[in-house]
Design a protein around this nucleic acid. Structure first.
Lengths: 342, 342
DNA sequence: ACATTCATCCAAAGCGCCTTGAATAGACAG
DNA sequence: CTGTCTATTCAAGGCGCTTTGGATGAATGT
C-alpha cells in the first residue's frame, strides 16, 4: 500500500492524503479522520526512502564505532549506550544505523556516509585526546554529538561526557583517606580521552596529597578481564606492592579480583579496589552493599541525553553547541577498607 | 555533488555516467575511466535514498533486538555478533540498522520496518521456543535469518545456530566422567530456545548416566553476574550441595566464581565449573590454560555467517532456506577437577 | 449582484537515481 | 554508394513522497 493506492482508494489526491496524515491544517477534520482510518486499515506507512528523498532528511542517525582493526575488542559500553539512544530515536521516528569503522578508513567512511545522504547526524564514539574527526565533520557539515570530550579543541561542539577527572580524583582521595599510598591505576587506552582524564584525576589527588606518582603502578590498555588479571598479578608480586587498585571498568576489575584471590589475599581487606561502573545491565553492581566501591554513571542515560541533544541540533542547526557534563556518584561497596600498614 | 552535476561537468548524460560507474558494458573503456576519475575527484557517492527508491532495494539489513522492556538487560553477545555481521555488510555495500523492539510491540515494529521499505532483510535475534515472528515475517515477505533455531517449526527457514544441546551434553558428560553427580545448571531464560536446548543437552547426559535430574539444581534467568552469584551462593549452602556448575555464559560464571570464593571453596578443586564461552573479545578466556573449562563458539563468527547467508538469500529469493549448525569446542581450563566425595 | 475571503482540495514539479527505448555515428559488407 | 551492424550515447519516464502554486466553491461583506 503506497500513497497513490491509498489516495485512489479514498478518491482523494495524493496531496490531500499526505497533508492529512502529516497534520497540515489545509485539510478538513472530517477528511483527515477518514484518511487516518483508511491508512490504519491498509497498514499504510510512508516509504522512508521516498520520504527522505523528497524532504532531504534521512530520518536516520549514524553511530560510528571506531576499532583498530576488524578483530578488535568491541567495547561493551556501546551496546548499552545505543540501547539508550535508540529509545529516543524511536520516539521521534528516526532510525539508527551502525557503522564499525577501522581507524585507518575513518575519514573515507565519514565522507561516504555524508555523501550518500544516509544520515542526518552522527554520534562520535570513543574520542581520542586529539580528534581529527571534529574538523572533518565540521568540514563535511554533518551535525554530530561526541560521547566524551576532546581535550584539545578550541571550537565549541556538542558533547556529553562524564566528569572522568573529578570521578577519579574523588576515588583516589577516598583511597588516600583510607590510608593507602601505593595505589595502582589500571586504566583504559590513554590515547582515548576518557582514560587520559581519569589519569589526570588520579594524579591530581596524588599530587594534592603530596604522594609520589609511580609510573610502575600505572597501566593502560584495552579494558579486558585478562588485562586486569595480568597487570594485577604482576603488581602483587613486586617488592613494594600497591595496597589499592583503581580500575577503569567493571570488566577489568574482575580480572583484578581474580588476581587478588589467587595471591591469597582478600579484596576489601588486604587490597582495596575502586572501579568506575558504567552501570551495564548485566553487571548490576547492586544489592544491599555493592561488591565494588565505585564511581557510578549510567552510560545508558548518557545515550539518551546524547540522542536528544543530536536531534535538537538537527532540528535547529543554528543552535549553539550544547554540552552536558554528568557527575558520577561515589558509592561504597565491599571492595574497600583501611590500608594495612606493611 | 550529485549525478546531474557530475554528468554536466563531464559533458555526458546521466545515463552514461550512471552506467559507467555501475560497470555496464555499454560504455567505452575510455569514457568509463574518465568518469571514474571525475567521480573520485569530486568525491561523488550516489545518494543512497535515491538509489534505493529507483532500484527498490534498500541496501540495508535490519537487526531487531528483542527486549522485555526498555530497562531490560542488553545481551552482551549482540554487540559481538553485530561486529561480525557488519564486516560482511560493508563488503557488499549494505548498511546496518538497529532496532530495539519491546516484545509487546514486536509485530507492529516488524510490519513497520517492512512497510517503510527500510530494509531488504532482517536478522532475528534471540528466538524463543515458539516463534510467532517466523510466520509474521513469511507473511510480510521479508527475507530473514534467525540467529538460533526454533524448536517447533515445520516450515524450513534460514538459521544459523550453535549446537547447544550437544555442547551441554558434552560438558555434562565431562563433569560426570570427573565423578560429579550433583551438577547445577545455571541457565539463561528457558523460554529462549538456546537455553531450552542447553537444558535438554544437560538432561540427556544425566539420563544416559542414570543420574537424577533435580529441579532444585536448575535455575534459569537473564544471564547477569548477580544471578550467577545469588544462585550459586544459595546452592552452596544447601544440605546436599552440587559439586559442579554448568554456566550458560561467562558473565554468569563470574558470579558463580564469586560465590565459590566467598564460601571459602576453591574453583577447580572443591567445585568444578564449565561455561559456555561465546568468545567475547573483552573476556578472552585464553592463555596457556584458560581459567574456565568451556564449550567455545565464536559468536562473532556466527554473525559473519548469518550476514552472508542473508545476503545470499536476498540476492536469490528462490534459494531454498539454508541452515548452519556450528559445533562448539570443548577446551579444558582450570575450573574443573575430579569430584571430591562428600 | 458582485467582489473578496476562506476553507478545501488538486495537478504537477521535483528530490537523485536507474533503466527502457531510441538515436547517432562509425564500421563493415555488398 | 547504400544498407546493415555494432558500439556509444542520450532523452525521458518512473520509483513514492512532499510541496508549490493554483483551482474550486461556499461563505462573507458591501
Amino acid at each position: 500500500m503506497n500513497l497513490k493506492q491509498l489516495s485512489e482508494h479514498l478518491g482523494l489526491s495524493q496531496t490531500t492524503v499526505s497533508r492529512a496524515l502529516n497534520g497540515y491544517p489545509e485539510v478538513s477534520e472530517s477528511t483527515r479522520k477518514r484518511v487516518q482510518l483508511a491508512a490504519a486499515e491498509g497498514n499504510y506507512r510512508p516509504n522512508l526512502r521516498a520520504m527522505s528523498l523528497a524532504t532531504g532528511k534521512a530520518m536516520t542517525i549514524g553511530h560510528v564505532i571506531p576499532v583498530a582493526d576488524q578483530h578488535d575488542v568491541v567495547n561493551p559500553i556501546f551496546a548499552e549506550f545505543v540501547a539508550g539512544a535508540s529509545q529516543v530515536y524511536k520516539q521521534h521516528g528516526y532510525e539508527l544505523t551502525l557503522t564499525i569503522a577501522e581507524t585507518r578508513n575513518e575519514e573515507s567512511i565519514y565522507r561516504s556516509i555524508a555523501a550518500r545522504g544516509a544520515v542526518d547526524g552522527v554520534i562520535v564514539h570513543s574520542p581520542k585526546r586529539t580528534e581529527p574527526r571534529l574538523a572533518l565533520l565540521r568540514e563535511i557539515g554533518l551535525p554530530f554529538v561526541v560521547h566524551g570530550r576532546v581535550s584539545e579543541s578550541d571550537t565549541p561542539y556538542n558533547w556529553i561526557d562524564m566528569n572522568n577527572r573529578r570521578a577519579f580524583k574523588q576515588a583516589t582521595q577516598l583511597l588516600i583517606d583510607l590510608g593507602h599510598t601505593d595505589i595502582a591505576l589500571i586504566n583504559g587506552d590513554e590515547s582515548l580521552n576518557f582514560a587520559w582524564l581519569r589519569r589526570l584525576g588520579f594524579e591530581d589527588a596524588m599530587r594534592e596529597n603530596k604522594l609520589p606518582i609511580k609510573k610502575a603502578l600505572m597501566a593502560s590498555a584495552d579494558l579486558t578481564e585478562t588485562f586486569g588479571y595480568q597487570t594485577a598479578s604482576a603488581l602483587l608480586k613486586c617488592s613494594d606492592c600497591p595496597t589499592a587498585f583503581l580500575a577503569s571498568s567493571y570488566v577489568v576489575a574482575l580480572g583484578i579480583r581474580r588476581a587478588i584471590g589467587q595471591a591469597g589475599l582478600q579484596m576489601g581487606k588486604d587490597i582495596s579496589v575502586i572501579i568506575h561502573d558504567d552501570e551495564l545491565s548485566y553487571f548490576d553492581n547492586d544489592g544491599a552493599i555493592p561488591q565494588f566501591t565505585a564511581t557510578r554513571s549510567s552510560v545508558r542515560e548518557a545515550g539518551i541525553l546524547a540522542a536528544d541533544m543530536l536531534l535538537k541540533q538537527i532540528d535547529d542547526p543554528t543552535l549553539f553547541p550544547q554540552n552536558t557534563l554528568l557527575e558520577s556518584h561515589l558509592t561504597m561497596g565491599l571492595s574497600t577498607g583501611p590500608a594495612k600498614r606493611a
